[in-house]
Simulated assay, not measured.
Amino acid sequence: MISTDVALKPLRGIGEFYATALDTGVAMFKPPFAWREFLLQTWFVARVSIVPTLMLAVPFTVLVVFTLNVLLVEFGAADFSGTGAATASVTQIGPIVTVLVVAGTGATAMCADLGARTIREELDALRVLGIDPIHRLVVPRVLAATVVAVSLVSLVTIVGLAGSFAFAVFVQHVTPGAFAAGLTLLTGLPDVMLGLVKGALFGMAAAMIACYKGMSVRRGPQGVGNAVNETVVYSFIALFVINIVTTAVFYTGTE
């Protein structure tokens, strides 16, 4: 019996997560919407994420551009460095860097907050009062993380391209005009939309995982710490799965 329970525990957790996600999707369209909580969470996630995200975006993008330019110089095609920088920043680096920071700062804070409320039985008190915790607490947090992630993707992409331009032109002596002309050679509006969609999915998944782990905390303060650690790990796993699936679907559909 014990071995059966251990084997079924991960499956039970997956089922509970999808049930919570389904309840959240339904609750998004139920009035009244918790605008105050949404604005507070949006400001909080943006405040703790924007500086680390921008600081992480520049070295990520510069590293890709430097590696790519070394290869392009060998082929005598250094003028196409802008093409690689645009493709990498818009479709990969922007969304990935954004969700790494959002998951590491905003999502963990959401998990810790809901976990503390859970062990203090505040969520049970809300249910007794007839208030749905998912509608009042989870929905604003999920939407806030989604909005902030989409906004940060755009900002990270711009900062990454600016950093790539400065590094390629002033360090690797790429022609400025050629770099600028190559930005739109392979990257267009569909690629920009792909980056924004990735950011939205990443932010939503990270917040959903954080809220679920926070609301399912057990064993007091120790459980809260374990839930925060699991939030980071599961968010990163979800990041790479969503990234692979969306990229494959996008490029398969455009062929």
Rank of each mutant, 00 (worst) to 15 (best):
P95M: 06
V97F: 05
T98S: 06
V99I: 11
V99A: 04
L100G: 08
V102G: 08
V102D: 13
G104W: 11
G104K: 04
T105Q: 14
T108R: 07
A109P: 09
M110C: 11
C111Q: 12
A112V: 11
D113K: 07
L114C: 11
R117M: 15
T118N: 15
E121M: 15
E122R: 05
A125L: 15
A125M: 14
L126H: 06
R127W: 09
R127T: 13
V128G: 07
L129C: 10
L129Q: 12
L129F: 10
D132V: 04
P133K: 00
P133R: 00
P133C: 03
I134H: 03
R136T: 13
L137M: 09
R141Q: 10
R141A: 12
L143D: 04
A144C: 03
A144F: 07
A145R: 00
A145T: 02
T146C: 05
T146G: 03
V147Y: 11
V147G: 03
V148N: 07
V148P: 09
V148E: 12
V150Y: 10
V150S: 03
S151V: 07
L152Q: 06
V156I: 10
T157M: 13
T157I: 11
T157D: 14
I158Q: 09
I158V: 15
V159K: 04
G160Q: 06
L161W: 06
A162G: 13
A162C: 14
G163L: 05
A166C: 15
F167W: 12
A168H: 07
F170A: 14
V171D: 15
Q172A: 15
V174F: 09
V174E: 09
P176N: 05
G177M: 13
G177C: 11
A178M: 08
F179L: 06
A180K: 08
A180P: 09
A181L: 12
A181G: 08
A181W: 14
G182I: 01
L183M: 03
T184E: 11
L186I: 07
G188D: 07
G188I: 01
L189I: 06
D191R: 05
V192S: 02
L194P: 03
L196P: 01
V197F: 10
K198M: 02
A200T: 00
F202K: 00
F202G: 01
G203Q: 00
M204N: 01
A207E: 12
C211K: 00
Y212F: 13
K213C: 05
K213S: 08
G214Q: 03
G214A: 01
